[in-house]
Computed example of a mutant assay.
Amino acid sequence: MTVLDETPVDLSAGVGMYVGKSPVMKEVLDLAFRWAKTDYQVLIEGETGTGKELMARFLHHASERWDRPFVAVNCGAMADSLLESELFGHEKGSFTGAHRDRKGLFEQAAGGTLFLDEIGEASEAIQVKLLRILETKEFYRIGAEGSLPMTARVITATHRPLRKRVEEGAFREDLMFRLDVGKITMPPLSKRLRDIPDLVVSLFQKEGLPERTLTDQALKRLESHPWPGNIRELNHVMIKTAVTLPAQQTIIDEGDLALPESRLDERLLLNHESDCTVPELLEAVRLYEKELIQARIETVLKETSGDRKRAAELLDLTERKLRYWLNEK
């Protein structure tokens, strides 16, 4: 049996994407499997941490291109000049530091799949070049006189809907139409709460961690958490939980969960009999707000490899304000 004979669930497991029991995720997988069997461009939308790159790998793995290269790049994590060189490659001597010819990602992905993550953050200049490539099926290395054929399938992803980016004037509508032939929307973890127990089991198996059981109280606590970071955040919390527990402990209770610490006592919001004052509640909310903002900034800094200027742009902040939130002078 070849890869092309495998079921969608088997293929998803092969790329590390757990489908679970939630109907919404099964519908997404079935749709993705149908698009995988075509050669059209596919746009994947979804919140941060929902598994967009895993879905892109599934689309590649389930297609007839499965035995060809899968190449990925984050369009929001690089400066324009670097991204252009990364995508298209360059000829020796085409600019300072170009000491040899270099294949770009379009060449490296020849016959396979090129995954452009965070396509919504691409600059106008990059968008124009991508549009031309998709229309002509050819591209130029930087400094080259002749063109090269583009044979890769292009799959893109964004955590901000492209239609909204178009309405904001930040993305070309004609390019959106080229990319959004097929669309897959990854559901947030809040729509997959029934999958949490099996997601935890799958994570522990994948990471080689001891098998442990969640108590009902622990599960309820996980289901009530908002999960702004979705599955990525769940993985982080459960790995931290598993590593910090005593090796002999096989049960995970509510108090064992390594959820983000917050000075906002959730009982103040859930218990109407609480004797806290309104000023105390407002102060707790203010501190919690600061923690949430700082966590979001740290996440974006990781995605941009520490590039504060780029992170500030993605967060719609000035660099000065970003430093303020990080308590930097």
Rank of each mutant, 00 (worst) to 15 (best):
E283G: 02
T2E: 15
D30T: 09
F95T: 02
L83S: 09
L219V: 02
K183W: 14
R153N: 04
L270R: 13
V237L: 13
T96R: 07
V181S: 14
L83T: 04
A98M: 03
V285D: 11
E289M: 05
K103R: 13
T151G: 06
G182A: 10
T215P: 02
L214E: 15
V71H: 05
N230V: 04
L245I: 00
E167N: 10
I251S: 07
Y140P: 02
L270M: 11
R65Y: 01
W35T: 05
P246I: 00
R323F: 09
R34W: 12
E138D: 13
T244H: 15
R100C: 06
G208E: 13
W227C: 08
S190W: 11
E233L: 05
K37E: 10
D198I: 06
D30F: 08
M25T: 08
R323T: 00
R267A: 08
T213P: 07
H61T: 11
A125P: 05
P23W: 14
K290P: 08
S262A: 05
M238F: 10
P187K: 12
L209R: 01
H159K: 06
V3G: 14
I231F: 12
E266Q: 04
T318D: 04
F88S: 10
T50H: 10
A144Q: 08
S262Q: 12
I293F: 08
R194C: 14
A312P: 01
A32R: 04
N235D: 15
A56E: 08
V154N: 14
R165M: 03
D67G: 00
D316V: 02
R165S: 09
L292M: 11
R163M: 00
R221P: 12
K92T: 01
W35F: 15
L287T: 05
T318G: 00
E124H: 14
P228G: 07
A144K: 02
V128P: 03
F106K: 10
F106Y: 07
F115K: 04
E47P: 04
